[in-house]
């Protein structure tokens, strides 16, 4: 592995990462084998099981590419290893970018995502913050998953009518359920919105291009939104279901290309204008 003397990408860090990745892979293979055997024991058609594997693999590739794009996006600051591991274990596109930002702020790393972390102590601190920040669900699962699952399976047996919606969550009868369905999207909208609002109205660190809201950040943001919406519409109108998972990565990549074009084509005084400083 070429490391160029960079501690963030040293061979030993890659080996540590490889061990973590192998562990995750091992768990997935274990559950796959057990579920496959159980499927056969239940008499499920082998073709059905094979189709589940094929369709899931195809479904996953575009999203996996957008997760890979996030690893590469975080790499200028953190190197490859931390983003790779963090997005392979519990990680999530939105959480990891946010966690990296929070950790960098806490350790006083100036320049955000575009600037290399050069202090090994700060680097290790960021790894701790990102790992501890995301770990709570693994603490909860051993206590909560079984009783919750049991309740759901029993409810399904008692009232089959409730589960006529093809694998989706059954509609609850209590009054608050309509609002509860909105909580999860609302949390994500708040999270995404923070980055959207900063690209429109936030100030950056002085002397660092692209840290604050400016012409290029707004052009990039608007391009990402518009391109994603257009492709989503195309996928929907033309019933191209295979295109749907590609929409997000296409939007992101086109927006990054447009940011390069805008920066190089616009007059310099406009291209570097960041209205909030």
């Amino acid at each position: 592995m070429p490391t160029n003397g960079d501690f963030r990408n040293s061979t030993s860090l890659y080996l540590i990462a490889a061990a973590v990745i192998l562990f995750v892979l091992g768990q997935s293979v274990f559950f796959l084998v057990k579920a496959w055997k159980q499927g056969k024991a239940l008499g499920i058609d082998k073709k059905k099981l094979r189709d589940a594997v094929t369709s899931s693999a195809i479904f996953t590739i575009p999203s996996a590419l957008s997760i890979l794009a996030t690893v590469i996006a975080l790499a200028p600051a953190l190197g490859m290893v931390i983003p790779w591991v963090r997005l392979s274990v519990i990680g999530n596109l939105m959480y990891e970018s946010t966690a990296a930002e929070a950790a960098m702020e806490a350790f006083g790393h100036i320049g955000g995502m575009a600037e290399k972390v050069t202090d090994p102590t700060v680097f290790a601190g960021i790894a701790w913050v990102m790992s501890l920040g995301i770990c709570f669900s693994l603490v909860l699962l051993p206590f909560l998953a079984k009783p919750l699952h049991k309740k759901f399976v029993e409810a399904g047996k008692k009232d089959k009518e409730e589960t006529e919606n093809n694998g989706e969550k059954p509609k609850k009868k209590n009054d608050i359920s309509g609002f509860m369905d909105l909580v999860s999207p609302a949390v994500f909208i708040g999270l995404i919105g923070a980055f959207v609002a900063r690209a429109v109205a936030g100030s950056g660190k002085p002397d660092i291009f692209g840290d604050g809201a400016g012409v290029v950040s707004v052009i990039t943001l608007v391009t990402a939104i518009v391109v994603s919406l257009v492709f989503e519409l195309i996928a929907k109108k033309l019933k191209l279901t295979w295109l749907e998972p590609f929409v997000m990565p296409i939007g992101m990549i086109v927006a990054m290309v447009v940011s390069v074009v805008a920066f190089n084509v616009l007059p310099p005084e406009i291209a570097i204008w960041e209205w909030r400083g």
Partner: peptide, 10 residues
């Protein structure tokens, strides 16, 4: 430098 607006815009 514009990774976040691109990612979160999409």
């Amino acid at each position: 430098a514009q990774v976040l607006p691109a990612l979160f815009g999409a």
